[in-house]
């Protein structure tokens, strides 16, 4: 019995640094700016004007849409590219396979700061700066996709070969086996890839700053840094209101779907 009390106590204590920042973000966004550094857990008076200020200062709805649609396209695209490549690297034997896999893996080792200048030149030459194309194409085909390929490959490696043998006997070709047999089985791994990819795109910070130059093209992380007064001083409570709006919907989706979410993640990496 006392062991249980100890465990709960420990868990609750450990929770504080995980939960408190979010709590503080949400409540402080409704405090008057003079109370941001006060010790009170709740605002003395609740103000929601910060939330309307967010929309007045920036085309925040448009920016929300930008982040959302980019993240969705990138997620779907990455799932497709990673599933195809992951499957081929794991299950098909073709000449040069290992070399090609190592070539692709290089992307895992490169921080985006390293290649941002040549990439910027590339997209500039294609006339694609201040468009969302670089934020969509590079993650789907470039370095950020590599982790997804790796996860998918690990998953397909662990797939029992008997399933494919049977399908081949039934006259299915490679593409058929992939589409009818392997892909449906890989749902947990695809789920994990989807989560990783969505979060990665949703959090992208350096790239939007470099590529995008007009507020109606901005994405959310970039928009968050734009809530400043005339003199460049940050408007903390407005910033926190905007931050709350970017975080809370994702958190709610997570709480609702958390079983699939975490179990999807748990299926990655442990095998293989």
């Amino acid at each position: 019995m006392s062991r249980k009390v100890w465990l709960y106590g420990l868990l609750c204590l450990l929770c504080v640094p995980f939960v408190f920042p979010t709590w503080w973000m949400v409540t402080s966004s409704m405090k008057p700016i003079s109370e941001i550094f006060s010790e009170s857990l709740l605002p003395s008076e609740w103000t929601f004007s910060t939330y309307s200020t967010v929309f007045k200062m920036q085309p925040f709805g448009q920016q929300y849409w930008n982040s959302l649609y980019i993240a969705v396209i990138v997620t779907v695209g990455t799932m497709a590219v990673a599933a195809l490549a992951g499957y081929a690297f794991a299950r098909i034997k073709f000449p040069g396979q290992n070399v090609l896999f190592v070539v692709v893996l290089t992307g895992l080792l490169i921080p985006s700061e390293v290649t941002i200048v040549p990439l910027f030149q590339l997209f500039q030459s294609l006339g694609m700066t201040n468009t969302h194309w670089p934020l969509i194409i590079v993650p789907i085909f470039g370095a950020p996709c590599v982790l997804a390929i790796f996860i998918m490959r690990q998953f397909f490696l662990a797939l029992p070969p008997e399933l494919e043998e049977a399908a081949r006997m039934d006259g299915l070709g490679r593409a058929g086996i992939f589409y009818r047999i392997a892909l449906p089985l890989s749902r947990p791994a695809l789920g994990a890839v989807a989560i990783f990819t969505f979060l990665h795109s949703w959090n992208l910070y350096l790239e939007p700053i470099v590529y995008l130059s007009t507020p109606d093209m901005f994405t959310l992380p970039q928009a968050l840094t734009q809530f400043v007064d005339i003199y460049g001083g940050p408007m903390w409570n407005v910033q926190l209101a905007a931050a709350t709006m970017t975080a809370v919907p994702i958190l709610v989706v997570f709480v609702v779907a958390q079983r699939q979410f975490i179990e999807g993640l748990a299926h990655t990496g442990v095998k293989g």
Binding site: C15, M25, W202, N203, P221, L224, A243, T246, A247, I262
Partner: peptide, 12 residues
């Protein structure tokens, strides 16, 4: 609860 910070955007 322990997982939730993963979902909060990095800049926020």
């Amino acid at each position: 609860l322990f997982f939730s910070p993963v979902l909060v955007s990095l800049v926020a």
